[in-house]
Design a protein around this nucleic acid. Structure first.
Lengths: 232, 232
DNA sequence: GTTCCAATTGGAA
DNA sequence: GTTCCAATTGGAA
């Protein structure tokens, strides 16, 4: 019985994640077909919305849809989340709601510096970078978020644990990535995708390794280029 | 308590199914009002969606259930509560349709030697071993199937590719596991779980590495034991 | 230009 | 007693 519930829980999360992806698709399509003159309005609204604009908007819209659509009412879900004893499971599903309550730390600076919170809300990235995230692939999304949160150099010189490889115990260990930021990336990804944390961590490990290779490659190129004429 | 949950579960499922139908309506409308030139993009996305088809299939199946039986809630509660019990759990995460299509090539030999086909049907394992497979975890299930198909020694001395590690190019490569059997294991696992092939392969790689360690450990133990009295 | 693959390792879980 | 973790590597994809 409990097991059944476990599977239903997983399935429910999957479906909800699928729903989120569908919303993303809808937003993409809407953006595509939207008359240009409306984009100005969009910007205005963006200012009005505090904090996690995109996510908040998404959740609100979801609730609006449900209440608009007859039976399917949001009061039902409210009831269930408050009444049921299995809190964790519900929390799992309604994470986005909690996210909406995270105090908005958006800076009121220029538009170009607009930030958006990911994960717990403690980690901020540029809105523009967030927009480029590919929400179809957890691997791609993780890598994009990594580049939004850390510089290439940091990624190249750090790793998940700060420990050296057990297979290369003589090689010096790289430094440890800011674990709070890593955690926020993982939270963001596992909220949006039906993927286990360890797989996200694995992607992060690989990304750091890849950036490390690229970093070294760039450094050797730098050393080699001066032998040729540097002027273009 | 359980009744509350049953009630909420049914309600949640209804909401999700309703949401899916709403999505379809939305997509239809969007397609209608979308400028033609954007359809090319849609085609591109189609590739991405193919990747998610397992999930989609799962959802569709659910919808089929509900439409087949007019009021899906009755089917659901019947299935989960009365007849199948734990088997229903498997049905929840597995794709029962695909499972049904796997040609059963069970041999009609003695009961003790009864074999069961996995994957494409070309690979046979003992029924008893098949029964011990834990269908809750793709990792555990993969490892059990590996031990059912290969001996510990083979696992210890072989690997997926037959190539040596790029990180240890001096070390001799292990032999290559029978790729047909490997393929059947992967097919069996990906039929039963919503997991990508690369993750199953990763588990196989790790299992071989683990068996290799254990094999070496056993060998060193064998060499050490004779110094003590071997009797018992 | 990046991402992904998989073999190896020692120790943690 | 096994499984899992993650750092490293070169090259394939």
């Amino acid at each position: 019985m409990d097991l059944t519930w476990e599977y239903d829980k997983i399935k429910a999360k999957k479906l909800i994640i699928q729903a989120n992806k569908d919303f993303e698709r809808i937003f993409q399509i809407l953006d595509e077909i939207k008359p240009k003159e409306l984009n100005a309005d969009r910007e205005k609204y963006a200012d009005v919305f505090d904090g996690n604009q995109r996510t908040v908007a998404l959740v609100n819209q979801e609730e609006d849809n449900s209440s608009d659509d007859s039976n399917y009412s949001s009061t039902d879900s409210d009831d269930s989340s408050s009444s049921i004893g299995t809190i964790n499971d519900v929390a799992l599903i309604t994470n986005t709601h909690q996210k909406a309550f995270v105090p908005s730390k958006k800076q009121d600076s220029d538009k170009e510096n607009d930030l958006i919170a990911i994960g717990s809300g403690a980690t901020l990235i540029h809105k523009d970078k967030y927009r480029t995230v590919n929400w179809k692939s957890y691997s791609s999304a993780t890598r994009t978020l990594l580049l939004a949160v850390f510089s290439r150099k940091i990624l190249a010189t750090h790793c998940l644990t700060g420990k050296c490889s057990p297979a290369f115990r003589n090689k010096p260990a790289k430094k440890c990535l800011d674990s709070k930021k890593v955690s926020d990336i993982i939270i963001e990804i596992t909220n949006k995708f039906d993927v286990k944390e360890n797989l996200v961590r694995s992607i992060i490990t690989t990304k750091c390794a890849d950036e490390c290779k690229m970093f070294k490659m760039r450094q050797t190129n730098k050393k080699e280029i001066p032998t040729k004429t540097k002027s273009q």
